[in-house]
């Protein structure tokens, strides 16, 4: 872990002042970057130097830097979160790059994710989708004992697989159609396989899909790029389950 190896890189970073401004790539030379740096630490170094030169540093979202908060993310050389699979940008390390590489860093691009600044995008569409049904309406208090309803380990594990979604938006970024199906289906799936979620399953899937559509995400055309870039390995099986849930709900719903 203590290799003193450093590399030099040419970065092409997307710079955009605000949602309505035109953006362009800025070429930045990053010198003597330790290969033990994370990608975001590399950007920290770049920003630090820019700040010393009184330039406006590159804005990028980040928080936990442990790959769990879902705040960070950019498209690195054409791949959301960069070349290492099942890894968020903050956990991607520079040893995955070679000396002299040119690295394109772009924001997650989708109409539903307007750019706030540089690499920062507005993913509030995800919150609005969840607000339409990504929950079980159990109010605080007045619920049965936790062990009152046994849930098969298989279903519990399936729910957990789906629930691992960190809402980073890489699925949308990677989808050729900028579709939010993987994100939406992960929540629909989690709650669909649990008995607690069954009560509201019909309304949930109808409302969440309707909100997803109105946020101007694209449609799923089963490329599975979302699954390939997902840092938490959320499976497209969830999309299938949501399709099933949706068809069922369309048939049985009373309105």
């Amino acid at each position: 872990m203590s290799s003193e190896k450093t590399i030099n890189l040419t970065l092409k970073v997307w710079r955009q002042k605000g949602p309505t401004d035109a953006g362009k790539f800025q070429t930045i030379h990053a010198k003597d970057i330790s290969v033990d740096c994370s990608f975001l630490e590399m950007l920290d170094i770049v920003n630090d130097e820019m700040a010393r030169g009184d330039q406006d540093p590159v804005a990028f979202d980040h928080d936990c830097r442990e790959g769990i908060c879902g705040m960070c993310g950019a498209v690195v050389n054409g791949i959301a979160h960069g070349p290492q699979s099942e890894t968020t940008l903050c956990q991607l390390h520079m040893r995955k790059f070679n000396n002299g590489d040119t690295i394109y860093v772009e924001p997650f691009r989708a109409k539903a994710f307007p750019i706030v600044k540089d690499l920062v995008v507005d993913r509030s569409a995800f919150d609005r989708i969840i607000a339409k049904g990504g929950f079980i309406s159990a109010k605080t208090g007045g619920v049965p004992d936790a062990n009152a309803i046994p849930i098969s380990k298989v279903n519990s594990d399936l729910a957990m697989d789906a629930a691992g979604c960190i809402g980073c938006g890489a699925c949308v970024a990677a989808c050729p159609n900028a579709s939010a199906m993987l994100f939406t289906s992960a929540k629909v799936s989690q709650l669909a396989v649990l008995p607690q979620g069954a009560v509201e399953r019909t309304e949930r899937v109808l409302n969440m899909v309707s909100q997803m559509d109105s946020e101007q995400f694209g449609n799923c055309s089963n490329h599975y790029e979302c699954e390939a870039v997902c840092p938490k390995a959320i499976k497209v099986e969830n999309i299938a389950r949501m399709n099933r849930e949706y068809l069922r709900a369309s048939v049985v719903s009373r309105d």
Partner: peptide, 10 residues
Amino acid sequence: YATVKDAGGS
């Protein structure tokens, strides 16, 4: 995107 690369799904 300026650069698009398949991550292996499509």
